[in-house]
């Protein structure tokens, strides 16, 4: 099954670069949804035997990450009637190249540092690092509030991948707890966004500084 895990993780890596290079909010949201669904398959492939609990949590994760959250984001996008273009601080090609460089560095580091010098070895650590990097890049270089949420989602995905390493030690339920927190967080932010929008007619995070008083 190692090759399948590696294939999924490679797809995740590529999705990261896709997320950094797209300019339409819609594509960004569906990209994150796809990433979430792919990640939810991972625990099934990594445990020795699949017990019902793992199956259920995987299903729930897939449902929340692949369906519920994207639907909420879509709705927010429609409700607040903003332009459907991502507003980047640095251009799409440079952010993709930065992401690619980070991914390459992560790959090289794990390949040559930890003795994973074998085609069968798993890509878990580099994939996790690259995903976290992508999340941080999106958080720091995009202006819209919705892209901020997506940034957090990707960041969480990265941590989730890292959690795969600890699957044997930490119960999977903990992961589910984190997911729940995130879910509630996003729920709240989406509602708040709607309210901010109706009050201030802008969702640019650069202007949110005027809310501080």
């Amino acid at each position: 099954m190692a090759w399948l895990v590696n294939a999924i993780l490679t797809m995740v890596l590529l999705l990261n670069l896709f997320l950094l290079s797209v300019s339409r909010m819609k594509s960004l949201i569906s990209g994150v949804a796809l990433q979430g669904i792919m990640l939810s398959i991972l625990p099934l492939l990594l445990v020795k035997e699949v017990d019902p609990l793992i199956l259920i949590t995987a299903l729930v994760t897939a449902g929340i990450k692949g369906w519920t959250i994207p639907r909420m984001l879509d709705k927010a996008l429609r409700d607040v009637r903003i332009k459907h273009e991502v507003e980047p601080l640095i251009g799409f090609i440079p952010s993709m190249l930065i992401g690619a460089a980070g991914t390459a560095a992560a790959l090289m580091m794990t390949i040559h540092a930890s003795g994973l010098h074998h085609p069968k070895s798993l890509l878990v650590i580099p994939a996790s690092m690259s995903t976290i990097l992508t999340g941080l890049l999106l958080l720091t270089t995009r202006f819209k509030a919705l892209t901020q949420i997506i940034g957090y989602l990707i960041l969480e995905n990265g941590i989730y991948i890292f959690g795969m390493l600890l699957l044997a030690v930490v119960p999977f339920l903990v992961e589910l707890g984190i997911l729940l927190d995130l879910f509630v967080g996003i729920f709240v932010v989406c509602i708040i966004l709607n309210h901010i929008h109706s009050a201030f007619a802008s969702l640019d995070t650069r202007r949110l500084t005027s809310l501080k008083e």
């Binding site: 490679t10 590529l14 670069l17 799409f92 190249l97 991914t103 790959l107 994973l116």
Partner: peptide, 23 residues
């Protein structure tokens, strides 16, 4: 204006492939 992005994505894809091939 999006063509370079597509081509750069292709280059990055092959580039990551190269890094993976180094294993």
């Amino acid at each position: 204006r999006h063509v370079p992005t597509l081509l750069a994505a292709a280059a990055v894809l092959s580039g990551l492939g190269f890094i993976l091939a180094l294993r």
